[in-house]
Write a protein that binds this DNA or RNA. Structure first.
Lengths: 166, 166
DNA sequence: CCCGATTTGATAAGGATTATAATTCTTCTG
DNA sequence: CAGAAGAATTATAATCCTTATCAAATCGGG
């Protein structure tokens, strides 16, 4: 964690920016919630716990700055708010997302699934790919399993019923 | 075009909605600008040309309705506004986009490039895919060609220079 | 042609983000 | 170590996009 913060610090310095306490607190919140997809408001509330004097505008500015440095990616799942998602260190592609239309959960896929597709796009459409965004909408494994369990239950009840009737 | 409007009309009726003149005018604008990615405001201004009395709220409501019916898809390219993109008729997947980071152009890929990837996701992550969003960010063929032309030009000038020097 | 339900238009309200301006912090310099 | 220039911060106002509200208009069935 400390190492990672130091490296971000260096990235900032390389562009003549400082790692102020507010910026550091914001980065820490992002690191501590790496799996989440926090909105600016979410980040603000979490940062406030460690640094109550911070202002909302500063959080917005910091997130913008981190986006510029490609430390985070700004994403949008269609609700009205932008969310900020930490990049894997050193990753040159943005990870993918699985959005559940039933429970709203957002899972991540770190692996790059698009290598071949990108090559195809570059060749066929003569388009130099620099980055991508890929999100699947569907039903997550938790909701699928819940459904299966319910179906099994229903089936068992049905059988019991049959037995009673005999 | 008329046929397509009729089919949309039927889709509306199937859900007890009417194809009012305002809705029809909105759909026509979308059909006439099929390759574009219009914002609600854009649509509003275009509809106003044919039906000056229409209100902005109606356009928003109609676009929401069309999104619900999967006639259009609501997308977001990271600028602050939602854009509305007509689906291919009968397509069960949403087409992909190529966003140029140099000139801002947005091109479409109608082909489905994700068949195999979706199968993999379903198997490996146990996630039932219903839809997807795929956008590539990079440099479009027009900008690439412009660059190449410039490089050729530069190179020719260099050669001329060499000759002069001799 | 009338009635109940739907849809509309104008505008207010809401929510997210950005701009502004005064203040505080840093860092540099002498 | 004081003073000054510049960067960053805070609080808040302003802006922009979208949604909610509600009276008025419209539509389709009887």
């Amino acid at each position: 964690m400390e190492g990672r913060i130091n490296r971000i610090k260096k990235q900032l310095h390389a562009q003549k920016y400082k790692l102020t306490p507010q910026r550091e607190a914001t980065v820490r919140v992002l690191l501590e919630n790496e799996q989440d997809h926090l909105s600016a408001e979410d980040v603000y509330l979490l940062v406030k716990e460690k640094a109550p004097e911070i202002g909302l505008a500063t959080v917005y500015r910091t997130l913008e700055l981190l986006t510029e440095l490609k430390v985070v990616d700004k994403i949008n799942f269609g609700d009205g708010v932008s969310r900020y998602d930490l990049r894997q260190e050193g990753a040159n592609h943005f990870h993918h997302h699985l959005v559940c239309i039933e429970c709203g959960a957002v899972d991540e896929i770190q692996e790059d699934l698009l290598g071949d597709v990108e090559k195809l796009v570059e060749r066929r459409w003569h388009f130099k790919v620099k980055d991508h965004r890929l999100t699947f909408h569907g039903i997550c494994h938790r909701c699928l399993e819940k459904r299966e369990a319910e179906n099994r239950q229903d089936h068992e009840n049905e059988l019991e019923h049959e037995v009673e009737k005999v």
